[in-house]
Design a protein around this nucleic acid. Structure first.
Lengths: 198, 198
DNA sequence: ACCTGAACACCGTTCAAGT
DNA sequence: ACCTGAACACCGTTCAAGT
C-alpha cells in the first residue's frame, strides 16, 4: 500500500543508471548532470551520494553495464551466425558496428572511462570480458586455418581497430548521410578478406 | 614603454587559444574552464566574450587550428618521404599516429567539434583540407597501379579508419605500455600491404 | 540504512558600465 | 573597440540533521 512515494526510493541505484543512460543519449557525455538526474528520478540532489561516491563513479558504473551489454550483443551475434568462419567474423563485426551506432555516446563513455587514471578494476575486467567471444572466433578460425596465423590478440587488435575507427568516423559524421551503410559493408567485407591466410 | 599590463591585452584571442591548448593537454577536454583560462591570461572572466561568443566557439577555433597543424604535419611527412608508394603511405600513416599520440586530447576535441550540430563551415573545411595531401598520395598510387583501384575517398576511408581506430585504442590505454610501438608498426605494415592491388 | 536541506566553491553567460 | 564587475542560474561536493 501507500503509493505516495516513500522516503526510501527502493532502487535508486538502478533508477539513476537508467536515467543516466537516457540523458546520455539525448545530451551527450559532457552534458550529464547529477543534479538533473536526481530531479528526474524525484530525489534530493544529495541522495545519489549514498550509491555513487562521485559523478565519475556513476559514469564508471554506466560504462561497466555498457560493456556487459556489448559482450552479450557480440556473443548473441556469434551464436546466431552459421558455422563458416567468414560469416562468424562478419557477424561480430556487424554486431559491434550496430551497437556502436545505436549507443554512440555510451560507447564513447565506455572507452573514456576505461582509460581514466583511477578506473576501477571491475571496469577493465568488464571491458576484457566483452571481447572474449570475438577473440575465440579468431582463435578458432586460426585453428581451422581459415584466419591468418599469429598471436590471436594481435590479429584481433588489427580487426578491432578497423571497426572501431570506422564507427568513430561514422559517429563523427564523416560520411555524408546515406553512404554510411555501403561503406560499412565494404569495410566489413574487406576486413574479413584481409584476415584470410595468405 | 609602460610594461604594467595595459587595459587592452593586445592579442587576447591568440593568448586564449594558446592557454586553451595547454589546459587541454593537462586537464583533458572536459575539464577546460573559460574562467580559468581568463585568469591564467590575466584578464577578467567576461573578456573572452569579445573574441569568442561562446565556450564552444573557443573549442571550435582550437579544433580548426588543430586541423591546420595536422594537415601541415601530414604534408611534411609526405614531402620528406621517398618516391616509392609504400614508403609514402607508411610515412603519412606514421605521421598521423604521431600527431594523434602527441595531441590525444586535441584530436578528440577536433573530431568532437567537427560533428557538433552547429559546427561552423570553417571547421569542416579545415578538416577536409587536412586530409587532402594523403588523398593525393592514394590517388597517385592508384595512377601508378601500386594501390588497389576504386574511389580514392573510399580507399582512403578504410585506411584512415584503421589508423584512427588504432590510435583511439592506443590513447585509451588498450595496449599494455611498451607493446604499443610494435603494434603500430605491425598495423602500418599490414595496412600498406593491404592497399596493394590484388 | 537511506535521504534531505543548507552551505561552499565553482562554472558559463549576460549586461550595464567603465577606458 | 575592448575590457570590468556585479548578477543570474546553474553545477559537484560536503555535512549536519532528519526518518
Amino acid at each position: 500500500m501507500a503509493a505516495t512515494r516513500p522516503y526510501h526510493h527502493g532502487n535508486l541505484r538502478e533508477a539513476l543508471l537508467r536515467e543516466g543512460e537516457r540523458a546520455l543519449e539525448t545530451g551527450g557525455a559532457g552534458g550529464l548532470s547529477l543534479r538533473e538526474l536526481a530531479r528526474a528520478v524525484g530525489v534530493s540532489h544529495a541522495a545519489p551520494r549514498r550509491h555513487f561516491s562521485d559523478k565519475q563513479a556513476l559514469l564508471d558504473a554506466m560504462a561497466e553495464a555498457g560493456f556487459v551489454r556489448l559482450g552479450d550483443a557480440l556473443s548473441a551475434a556469434i551464436a546466431g551466425a552459421g558455422a563458416r568462419c567468414d560469416d562468424r567474423l562478419a557477424a561480430v563485426a556487424r554486431a559491434y558496428v550496430g551497437f556502436a551506432r545505436r549507443h554512440a555516446a555510451l560507447l564513447e563513455l565506455m572507452f573514456a572511462a576505461k582509460h581514466e587514471a583511477g578506473a576501477p578494476p571491475e571496469l577493465r575486467e568488464a571491458g576484457e570480458r566483452a571481447f572474449a567471444a570475438p577473440l575465440r572466433v579468431i582463435a578458432e578460425g586460426q585453428a581451422a586455418a581459415e584466419v591468418v596465423a599469429g598471436d590471436p590478440e594481435r590479429v584481433a587488435i588489427v580487426a578491432f581497430a578497423t571497426m572501431h575507427g570506422l564507427v568513430s568516423l561514422a559517429n563523427a559524421g564523416m560520411f555524408d548521410d546515406v553512404a554510411v551503410d555501403g561503406v560499412i559493408d565494404d569495410v566489413v567485407e574487406r576486413l574479413v578478406l584481409g584476415l584470410r591466410p595468405r
